[in-house]
């Protein structure tokens, strides 16, 4: 059983990597370096801050978009185009398929992020000419961004399990935007009375919290991230992804394939 998940994951990884996704890495690295050079010429003293902010934000946004498109593309499209038929006619359980897809996509995104991070560090070195201990914070920020990607992938799979490719992308992106404003949702909830407060607070907790995984500005200012936050965020991302994937598997298990 585990072996099948592994093969599905590997195959997904291979398919994703060959699917032009690789080219964005090169594009990104080039853009980053160019931006860094430009920035260095405009502003003095805060180049590092700008490079870190710009770089991490770009990695985050690029990555989320990739996560949505390959997450949706490699599952919803696969279902629509019947590539799936020959796989599912074999002794593969439907939930194994979903889980395998998740790991394959997650792996792709990790590799993706790794190369983009290299570009970022290169740009940073160009600007600051040295690496300090404070730059370790960048690694934490990148780790959190990867956790965001896992969450996004799980959500993309969730929507793909019952919706068309286009609608899945739209839903996934919408959930990302809402999740980014999770803090504001909590804020609004705290100002409401009674039942509305309970409802909005509940909703604020159900929505995937992308903002707590965003420590970009803290890291840009060399603000240390507490270990407890790292641990908690890891647990949160794992649990939430598990929830999304198991529901995706549940739905997919019952789905009549066109």
């Amino acid at each position: 059983m585990n072996a099948r998940i592994g093969w599905i994951a590997f195959n997904t990884f291979r398919e994703a990597v060959r699917d032009r996704v690789l080219y964005n890495l090169i594009a990104f690295a080039l853009i980053m370096t160019a931006a860094a050079v430009l920035v260095g010429q405009i502003s003095i003293q805060i180049e590092r801050i700008v490079v870190v902010n710009l770089g991490l934000t770009a990695i985050s946004i690029f990555g989320i978009i990739i996560a949505i498109f390959i997450g949706v593309g490699l599952v919803a499209k696969e279902i629509e185009r019947r590539t799936l038929y020959t796989v599912l006619s074999r002794p593969v359980r439907r939930w194994e398929f979903i889980v395998g897809k998740f790991f394959g996509l997650a792996g792709t995104l990790v590799v993706n992020t790794f190369f983009m991070a290299l570009g970022l560090f290169a740009a940073l070195f160009y600007v600051a000419h040295e690496f300090t201990r404070a730059d370790l914070g960048l690694v934490v920020a990148l780790y959190f961004i990867v956790l965001q990607f896992f969450l996004m992938t799980a959500l993309a799979l969730f929507f793909s399990s019952f919706s068309t490719p286009i609608m899945s992308s739209v839903f996934a992106f919408a959930v990302f935007v809402i999740g980014t404003f999770a803090d504001e949702l909590h804020g609004v909830a705290s100002m409401l009375p009674g039942v509305s407060k309970a409802l909005v607070t509940g909703f604020a907790y159900l929505v995937p919290n992308f903002s707590s995984l965003n420590v970009i500005s803290r890291v840009a200012h060399n603000d240390p991230i507490p270990f407890s936050l790292i641990g908690l965020n890891t647990v949160y991302a794992m649990l939430y992804s598990a929830a999304a994937i198991s529901v995706a598997a549940l739905i997919f298990d019952r789905r009549n394939l066109k």
Binding site: R4, T83, Y85, S89, R90
Partner: peptide, 29 residues
């Protein structure tokens, strides 16, 4: 499922795999 084979109508496969890779993958499964 391990003892049956299926050819769907107008089959469509993974674009970016080679024939060899696809067959190996499906053989694994």
């Amino acid at each position: 499922k391990a003892r049956i084979g299926y050819l769907p109508e107008n089959p469509y496969f993974y674009d970016h795999l080679t024939a060899e890779e696809l067959l190996e993958y499906l053989a694994q499964l």
